[in-house]
Amino acid sequence: MSSSTLTREQSAKAFDGHQYVYSHESSTVGCKMKFGVYVPEKAEKEQVPLLIFLSGLTCTEQNFITKSGVQSLASKYGFIVANPDTSPRGCKIEGDSEKWNFGESAGYYVDATESKWSKNYRMFSYINEEFYDLIVKNFNVNPKKIGILGHSMGGHGALISFFKRPGQYQSVSAFAPICNASASEWGINAYTNFFGQDETLWKQYDATELVASYNGPKPHAPVLVDQGSDDSFKDNQLFPERFIVACKTASFPLELREQAGYDHGYYFIMTFLEDHFKYHKNEFEHAQ
């Protein structure tokens, strides 16, 4: 491991492996970034699959690793699981910390084009280039078995990463993703700041829009998306039904499961997380 690029902030044994938190100076977003990574014992002996998990609004690198119980599953399935922060921090841009759904903890995994934000808010490039390469180079990852998943804003981030980088990820899944970001209140507010009034730029970071033009490798099994029926954001921010229609129109395979009685939180994620591990494992088994 390259000690010159990564600083270990936390380390704890969990099951047969270790949960770490590292920091590094990011050249992409221009500040120190933290991330969590669980490394199972199996990775000490051989290359193993990698899952990247993207978190939602208000989250840091801590939420997923402290609330989901992911460590037991990562150990059981022998996956490295890496989860970055959700935005740059400490950039001191006016307006970046006034609202819970925009700015710090809410970077939407996009590359901003407006000059105020474009230097630091480059989370799409950070996730899919710098962070991706950092994990692959510093940990014992099988480069042919890499999947991405996320929750809410992070589910949106996972889907757009899969669609915009065909072939980079062998698998993708999501929990309650923002499916149509350019048409949701959250997305409209963020995208107006990040991209200005040019709605063609908004649509370049919108899963419902992107699936129509996706021409990369299709998954072996339909992409797995779980959505709670009692999610208070479902009908006015997430718009899963629009994504279902878009996937059908594009003949893109999707299994969107509405889970009765579940809300938007981590108990929901915890309940169905193993199904997502099983899904990614199945996709990895078909990877060439």
Score class of each variant (00 low, 15 high):
3 S>M: 13
4 S>Y: 06
12 A>Y: 03
13 K>R: 12
13 K>V: 10
16 D>K: 11
19 Q>K: 07
23 S>T: 09
26 S>A: 12
34 K>P: 00
36 G>Q: 11
39 V>R: 13
40 P>W: 15
43 A>D: 11
55 S>L: 02
56 G>W: 02
57 L>F: 11
57 L>E: 00
57 L>N: 06
62 Q>E: 08
63 N>V: 04
63 N>T: 09
64 F>H: 00
65 I>P: 00
70 V>I: 11
70 V>S: 14
71 Q>A: 14
77 Y>K: 09
79 F>W: 06
80 I>V: 06
82 A>G: 08
86 T>K: 05
97 S>Y: 03
100 W>G: 13
103 G>V: 03
104 E>V: 09
104 E>G: 08
109 Y>E: 01
111 D>W: 08
114 E>K: 09
116 K>L: 15
116 K>E: 08
123 M>E: 07
124 F>E: 10
125 S>D: 12
127 I>A: 06
129 E>W: 08
129 E>N: 11
132 Y>S: 15
140 N>E: 00
142 N>G: 10
151 H>K: 13
153 M>C: 13
155 G>S: 07
157 G>D: 00
158 A>T: 03
163 F>L: 15
172 V>N: 01
175 F>R: 00
176 A>K: 05
180 N>D: 15
183 A>V: 00
189 N>I: 12
190 A>P: 04
191 Y>T: 12
191 Y>R: 12
193 N>W: 11
197 Q>L: 15
198 D>P: 05
201 L>G: 03
206 D>A: 06
217 P>C: 08
220 H>N: 14
220 H>M: 09
224 L>Q: 11
225 V>N: 12
225 V>Q: 07
227 Q>R: 11
227 Q>P: 10
228 G>S: 04
230 D>P: 00
231 D>T: 03
232 S>G: 13
234 K>T: 01
237 Q>F: 09
238 L>K: 01
239 F>G: 05
240 P>A: 05
243 F>A: 03
244 I>S: 10
246 A>F: 12
253 P>C: 14
257 R>F: 04
257 R>Y: 07
258 E>W: 00
258 E>K: 01
266 Y>D: 05
267 Y>R: 00
270 M>S: 15
272 F>A: 13
279 Y>D: 07
288 Q>F: 13
